[in-house]
Design a protein around this nucleic acid. Sequence first.
RNA 1: GCGUCGGUGGUAGAGUGGUCAAUUACAUCAGACUGUAAAUCUGACGCCUUCGGGCUACGGGGGUUCAAAUCCCUCCCGGCGCA
Length: 273
Amino acid sequence: MEKIIVVCGPTATGKSDYAVELAKKINGEIISADSRQVYKGLDVGSGKITKKEMKGVPHHLLDVANPKTVFSVTQYKRLAEKVIKDIFKKGKTPIICGGTGFYIDAVIYDQDFPKVKPSKTLRKQLEKFSVEELSKKLQKLDPERFETVDIKNRVRIIRAIEIATELGSVPKIKRTKKYDVEWIYLDFPDDVLKQRIHDRLFKRMRKGMVKEVENLHSNKMSWKRLEDLGLEYRYLALYLQEKLTRQEMLSELEKSIWQYAKRQRTWFKKYAK
RNA sequence: GCGUCGGUGGUAGAGUGGUCAAUUACAUCAGACUGUAAAUCUGACGCCUUCGGGCUACGGGGGUUCAAAUCCCUCCCGGCGCA
């Protein structure tokens, strides 16, 4: 089995820098696993590594998508697999680095997500139903998947219905190991991580994060879309719309980043097993 | 000083005699994750428990009542009005 290195951990732990140093040492190339850094133009707010910080190490899967349209795991998986193959061909080691656990999972395991594209019309139709009604629909459509979905999670149920409608049922995914993975998990004690998040937020503010979001919006990115992107994009969008004061924006955002960091920890914990 | 409204769990804020350890939201903690994943969702959340229950709680103290966060008295604190 080919060897691959994964550098993961919650936000603000210095994964990018760590990966660069590692790549230089072992002659590796870096594949970003970050659901926001895939978008062009989301730089300061997403904490995207700069050309200079890359120190000549090749980075992949940054700036591969248009921020106005939704990018998804499947696209990520497809692109990443291609890149990984190329890196192996060169005799180098791929280093996956990022905080989006779902993306890491998608490439690390030999799993096939059902090839069912989101259907605008179906989703539109399902919009009007309550979660309970939707889950009943799913139960009828695919009793097996019904047993395993988050029964109160609207988004998940709709996707399950979408897949079941097209394929008859939601296929079970087998997760088999595809690579010999070396895990590197970066983290800090709570108080240290909180401080790092705080410092980094103000650093980003100084680096022109507000201007970045302003520009994105004047570049025809809707407030709605920016809000959907979460964290800095969400709170800065709210601030720029004057729905929050600057103080509120900063404190709410900092809080949300912490909550996000903890969700990441929850995800990465399963790798420890 | 007089009058008046109010003081509820980490916060905001319901409740206005029993069904109240107290709606709800936020925060906090834990968890989930099959094409939105920085998203979305779930659970716990006074203390103790052999999970039956027990104990302490709605500003302090006293009282009425079988029963009070809820009624009365008093004190303390805050807003407002009149002086």
